[in-house]
Simulated assay, not measured.
Amino acid sequence: MSKLYILLSIAVLFCLERIYFKIANHYNIIDKPNHRSSHSNVTIRGGGVIFSLAALLFFLVFGFQYPYFIVGLLLISVISFIDDVVTLNNKIRLGVHLIAVGLLFFQWGLFGLAWYWIPVAAIFVIGTINAYNFMDGINGITGGYSFAAIASLFYINEEIVAFTSSELLIIVGLSLLVFNFFNFRKRAKCFAGDVGSVSIAFILVFFIGQLILATGNFSYILLLLVYGLDAVFTIGFRVLRKENIFEAHRSHFYQYLANQKKWSHLVISLLYVVLQLFANAVLLFVAKDSALIAISLTVFSAICFLLVRFYVEGKGVLLKNKADF
């Protein structure tokens, strides 16, 4: 991809984002803070629509590649955008999500493999999408973390093993840069919304799935290690506290740092990005194809994360239900 094309892509994506802002302002597509929010200002919701628009732009310009993935992405993005505007019935949203996941599997060629890979892949895809959606709560975290993942995937594609289109990786990365310009700041101009968090999760899952299928190396799941640790342990603590894990909450570690400790959103987001980049470096340059090192990285990271949470939040916060106090 030439430098001129990159500059033109940035300009187009920037204009598309600005056009969306005008539409969102006109139709009052905004996010108003509530008791679960980690922000205090009324902000445009759905700025993450730019991720899907970038993928669509790639599809139209580069010969209609990955059609089933693109259709699945558009379906899951549209239903998420509608859910950003008006609350949808869970059955409708779930139905569309399942169709999108099915199209993703078809793009991967998963239906040609042994049947047991379907439920394994479904857990990975649906779990990642939901974790990404739950982790989207402070300025910069979705855009910054996702850009780190895309940058790592681009390096793998260029230097280690070619598994996907570099052009698609680049244009998604550019859309993240544009989004971060408006979101990675003290007072964000826009939030990703469900359309943003769900669509970028769907895109990253597509890339990681391609990579795993091309190499047979499941360790590449660790490209999302930090998000995974926060999501999995938060669910675990909520189960121990006998809370309904399907109800909205502010129990993630990043939320505790933002709301109780009053850390800057951007500092927290950068912390998550740096930790994930460090994990990626270990995965790519130390672990390589060693499953033992990858497992050791996971266990060591999990222990460190637990110790930090207990030290910062305390046993009472993590293990006791509010009703026990």
Score class of each variant (00 low, 15 high):
Arg241Met: 10
Leu8Ser: 11
Ser52Met: 14
Asn130Trp: 01
Lys320Asn: 12
Ile293Met: 09
Phe278Val: 13
Ser77Phe: 12
Ala291His: 07
Ser80Ile: 00
Leu277Glu: 09
Phe59Lys: 12
Leu223His: 08
Tyr132Phe: 15
Asn183Asp: 04
Phe182Gln: 08
Ala201His: 00
Phe181His: 01
Ala279Pro: 08
Met135Gly: 11
Ala114Met: 08
Ile44Gln: 00
Phe285Ile: 01
Tyr66Thr: 07
Ala122Asn: 00
Gly140Gln: 02
Ile160Cys: 14
Arg250Gly: 00
Val86Tyr: 04
Ile160Tyr: 13
Asp289Phe: 10
Ala151Leu: 15
Ile19Leu: 15
Cys15Ser: 14
Phe69Ile: 10
Ala24Met: 04
Phe51Pro: 00
Ile50Phe: 05
Ala287Arg: 00
Asn89Val: 04
Tyr145His: 13
Ile70Gly: 02
Pro119Leu: 11
Asp84Asn: 03
Ala323Tyr: 14
Leu104His: 10
Leu222Ala: 12
Pro119Ala: 13
Glu167Ile: 07
Ile245Trp: 03
Thr234Lys: 01
His39Ser: 11
Gln210Ala: 05
Tyr155Gly: 07
Val267His: 01
Asn180Gly: 12
Phe233Leu: 15
Phe124Trp: 15
Arg250Asn: 04
Asn28Thr: 09
Leu240Asn: 06
Val71Leu: 13
Ile10Cys: 13
Lys320Ser: 07
Leu223Asn: 01
Ile76Tyr: 09
Phe237Asp: 06
Lys3Val: 12
Gly316Trp: 01
Val49Glu: 00
Asp230Glu: 15
Ser219Cys: 11
Leu292Cys: 05
Val226Leu: 15
Trp117Ile: 11
Cys190Pro: 08
Phe154Asn: 00
Leu98Lys: 06
Phe124Cys: 10
Gly144Asp: 08
Leu204Tyr: 05
Val312His: 04
Leu16Lys: 06
Ile123His: 02
Ile293Trp: 05
Tyr145Gln: 09
Tyr272Leu: 09
Asn217His: 12
Gly143Phe: 08
Ile79Tyr: 01
Phe69Ser: 05
Phe106Pro: 05
Ile293Lys: 03
Trp115Gly: 07
Asn244Cys: 06
Leu271Asp: 01
Leu283His: 05
Ala114Trp: 03
Leu318Thr: 01
Leu223Asp: 11
Leu177Thr: 02
Tyr27Phe: 15
Phe207Tyr: 12
Leu88Ala: 03
Leu57Met: 14
Ala192Ile: 03
Ala294Leu: 01
Ser80Gln: 07
Leu229Trp: 05
Gly137Leu: 01
Gly216Ser: 04
Ala148Ser: 13
Leu8Gln: 14
Leu319Ser: 09
Asp136Lys: 04
Leu223Val: 10
Ile235Gln: 02
Ala121Asn: 08
Val308Ile: 14
Ile99Asp: 10
Ala55Gln: 09
Asn180Gln: 11
Trp115Lys: 10
Trp263Leu: 06
Thr164Lys: 03
Ser290Ile: 08
Phe206Lys: 12
Leu4Lys: 15
Ile200Leu: 09
Leu53Gln: 07
Ser199Arg: 08
Asp324Met: 02
Leu103Thr: 03
Ile23Leu: 15
Leu229Asp: 11
Ser40His: 09
Ile82Lys: 13
Ser264Gly: 08
Gly144Lys: 02
Ala214Thr: 12
Met1His: 12
Phe64Glu: 05
Phe305Glu: 05
Leu204Glu: 02
Phe14Arg: 03
Ile30Lys: 13
Gly102Glu: 10
Phe207Val: 10
Val198Tyr: 04
Ala231Ser: 15
Gly137Cys: 04
Ala188Phe: 00
Thr215Glu: 10
Ser77Met: 10
Leu104Ala: 11
